[in-house]
Design a binder for these strands. Structure first.
Lengths: 336, 336
DNA sequence: CTGAAAGCGCTTACAG
DNA sequence: CTGAAAGCGCTTACAG
């Protein structure tokens, strides 16, 4: 193949000047119908497509919105990506995605390099908390940023949408305590920089306000296998009657492990999660959880890029409420 | 703010020529250490970032790889996107994603417009089958394309990776028949353009080769709710002893519906799916399914963009094999 | 090792 | 309504 056709080739084929082709393309200025038709015919014949880079350059436009995220196949992030893409497209932006593994600094750097070499209008960071926020902020430089956080202090001033993990965890824990459980155990995931995750903090708050004992957390990562191991550990402790899992994806293998160990949910042990994944209602037993509005969080983050000072978005809290299902019930022998 | 700093500003601040700044940036040609330091200092001070559009224009590079997909939050597609992104980044490309709803032609067109206005090196279509392939192909024009198909004829000649849905469905159905079931019912999803889905074809083939009766399919879409309804319909038919669901995501609500109707899995009814979603092993009962290698499919599709004639990729078949778990067993009263 | 010149493919004023 | 000119911000030969 030769080089792809340019606007000059089209102009020559249509026997008009280059700016006239441009006018047909952009529709900015009226063009005589016959001229217009000749140009369109030439475009079709040559299979011409305007060069996006040249266009972006001359218009000073940055047509790309970047998303920086950890594994985007997880439920909440997948929903946010989906909604940002849809909203961005309506505004004429293309969404570019950079998957950054917070534990792998080298790959993080290279992914950022590649992304920031594009004409980027702004970047949405899904969970700034995860990264070394000051370093990331420095690398982003003057690029407009919006982020979705779960409430932890990120140490820098960035427009953010709050997904209120802490409040969600508090409510789930309160629900379990309200059923009469003496306390609630917690399958925790690591927070940012070695600190406890916001969901762990909310759990602890609820226990304290109720004066309930605070059992040690069972740590897990985000893998199914690690959730299963956590479940097996909890199953071995007969005093466990209620388990709050950091998220639904962990609650499923935890329930599975309890089942394997012969403990019934919810008769012997109640289990609850957070997120309300699509499958939460299809599990046996169906899972009590807290629905978070990730769709809204994605849309709001995009809006923040354009309107960093919109107070309604900055304080916006993406939550929806407790979803009560079958996996939670009063403890086996309620003493009150 | 003023306009962002350009390479001219940096050159002035560092008291060097513009090309010298460029040389520091690209590292293409050695620069004297002191000069280099001055330039780097100026870059840092001004917060300069090279304009991606100008760079792409002058280098004639197309730094973006586009992905066209339906809802990317579904498991298989999410994995493919993830793997394409990682592979693309290694080669210095950024991945832009365009979510096209095959049922909404207008939004499809606008999403394509926005995507194709970028400097695109190539496009990966996840499941060409879904779209009006000739029309899509025409709109893509000379843009290099690779696609992942599930075996249906797409009517155009495009480099493709085959995810062999048909073979997977055949094997799952054979497995159920091999357990002694008189026949296997099927919860089907729509194929492209009103034709049966490849998974339905594979199911039918297996029944025919075994001489088993071919019960009518129970149609579903991709929603949990519709899977549940399909399950309820099957539960109402006492002759049903084995159900092959188009995918795992449907198998969960189907099992749930059977459970609600008082039919035990696998004692009364066996259920199997395709995909091997992460949660398949955590369900109670754990789900027998067929593992498809979406990670490989994504990587192979990217390779095809660069090497459209690599035969090993074109005939590549992304499958992994049957995963036997608890949800399938011999029928209640085996007569042999 | 470094500077002056040319050019990538477009669009935007400026004239007519 | 249309053409000739200028310029967007870079990089790549071309000289020195």
């Amino acid at each position: 193949m030769n080089r792809p056709p340019t606007i000059v080739d089209v102009a020559r084929a249509a026997r008009v000047s280059v700016p006239t082709v441009s006018r047909v393309l952009t529709g900015s200025v009226p063009v005589r119908p016959e001229t217009r038709d000749r140009v369109l015919a030439a475009i079709a014949e040559l299979g011409y497509r305007p060069n996006g880079a040249a266009r972006a350059l001359v218009q000073g436009r940055q047509p790309i919105v970047g998303i920086i995220t950890r594994d985007p196949s997880a439920y909440g992030r997948a929903r946010m990506v989906l909604n940002i893409e849809e909203r961005a497209r309506q505004s004429g932006f293309v969404v570019a995605i950079a998957v950054l593994d917070p534990t792998d600094t080298a790959s993080t750097d290279s992914a950022l390099d590649v992304l920031l070499a594009q004409p980027i209008a702004g970047v949405i960071v899904l969970d700034y908390n995860l990264y070394d926020s000051k370093k990331l902020h420095a690398r982003l430089g003057a690029v407009p940023v919006a982020t979705v956080t779960n409430g932890g202090d990120i140490g820098i001033d960035v427009p953010h949408v709050l997904v209120d993990d802490r409040a969600a965890a508090r409510e789930v824990t309160r629900h379990l305590l309200g059923l009469g459980h003496a306390t609630v155990h917690h399958v925790a995931v690591p927070g940012a920089r070695g600190e406890p995750h916001a969901r762990e903090l909310g759990w602890r708050e609820a226990l304290r306000e109720a004066g309930a004992p605070e059992p040690p957390t069972v740590m897990s990562d985000w893998s199914i296998e690690s959730g299963r191991k956590a479940g097996l550990r909890l199953a071995a402790d007969p005093s466990v009657t209620a388990v709050f899992c950091s998220n639904d994806e962990l609650a499923f293998p935890v329930m599975r492990a309890l089942h394997e160990a012969g403990r019934r949910v919810p008769d012997d042990v109640s289990v609850a999660g957070i997120d309300d994944e699509p499958l939460a209602g299809s599990y046996i037993p169906s899972l009590t959880t807290y629905r978070l509005d990730f769709d809204w969080a994605g849309l709001a983050a995009f809006e923040l890029l354009a309107h960093p000072n919109r107070a309604d978005l900055r304080v916006g809290i993406a939550r929806h409420g407790l979803v009560l299902r079958e996996s939670t019930a009063p403890p086996p022998h309620t003493s009150n």
